[in-house]
């Protein structure tokens, strides 16, 4: 469905140096696939998401979605960021409806859908609450509803649970899977957490930094629905070790 063909990104820093953010990244993603992207900071994960969304042009290569090249922002995506970035002057429901308003879609047609999503995300009864009345995890659920309310086919998530505490984070990951199984989307899920990447995804893309390159793409053959206990599965451990080795080996080599 989404095809990334030798995408590269170079930009000029403020001091005039040329920085290679991404180099020759190629990846084919199927419809409704869950893809995790892991890698250390500075491997261009976020840049890759922005290129897929058409927010940032690639310096080389091309991204196509259902055969159509991405050249500008297109509204068939939903975004979830590390911070919920909700609008503090809007209630939960109005924050979810923000997407509909910005897209210029008729509000009346989507309000029921927004309420359904809020319920699906476990926030029933909180429609009229303001963001400051919610915990960090709940705020992120609202952000997820906002990203899904216009029913996009692609969901781009940039370390969505990175700002949450470890327990909330685990819970949110499984919640996301539950919602995804009800409303299947093609998901790009950027994370720093190797176990999170494995637990959630159909495939894990491992990237190395400076310039950001694909080190390997792993198929995760764990059954669905996923559960936290799968972390004790020997296959889980094997994936984890393989990813760890890919990420940390080049660094050690540089030190010696």
């Amino acid at each position: 469905m989404i095809s990334i063909r030798s995408v590269g990104k170079t930009y000029r820093s403020r001091h005039g140096e040329v920085v290679d953010a991404l180099d020759d990244v190629s990846l084919d993603v199927r419809e409704k696939e869950f893809v995790s992207i892991v890698g250390p900071s500075g491997c261009g994960k976020s840049t890759l998401l922005k290129i897929i969304a058409g927010l940032v042009p690639a310096s080389g290569g091309e991204v196509t979605i259902r055969g159509r090249p991405v050249r500008e922002p297109f509204p068939d995506v939903g975004f979830v960021f590390q911070n919920a970035v909700l609008l503090p002057w809007r209630t939960v429901l109005d924050n979810v409806m923000f997407s509909i308003e910005m897209l210029g879609l008729p509000g009346n047609d989507y309000r029921a859908r927004a309420r359904d999503l809020i319920e699906l995300a476990g926030l029933a009864g909180f429609e009229r609450k303001y963001p400051w009345e919610l915990s960090g995890g709940m705020q992120q659920r609202v952000a997820l509803c906002r990203a899904l309310v216009h029913d996009p086919s692609v969901l781009l998530m940039d370390e969505p649970f990175g700002a949450l505490d470890a327990m909330t984070r685990e819970e949110m990951g499984l919640e996301l899977l539950r919602i995804w199984e009800e409303r299947p989307k093609t998901i790009f899920f950027v994370t720093h957490s190797i176990p999170e990447a494995i637990l959630l995804a159909d495939r894990v893309v491992v990237m190395t930094p400076r310039p950001g390159r694909l080190a390997r793409v792993l198929d995760i053959a764990l059954d669905r629905p996923r559960a936290v206990e799968m972390e004790f599965d020997p296959r889980f451990k094997a994936y984890s070790e393989e990813i760890r080795a890919l990420i940390f080996r080049p660094r050690r080599e540089r030190v010696h």
Partner: peptide, 26 residues
């Protein structure tokens, strides 16, 4: 304005005026 909200608005192809009224000004 948080840059994420500006990215979001841009991704929804909202006009600069709409982004101003609904995001930046408040």
């Amino acid at each position: 304005t948080p840059p994420e909200l500006l990215d979001l608005s841009r991704s929804y192809r909202a006009s600069a005026f709409k982004t101003f009224v609904k995001v930046r000004f408040p």
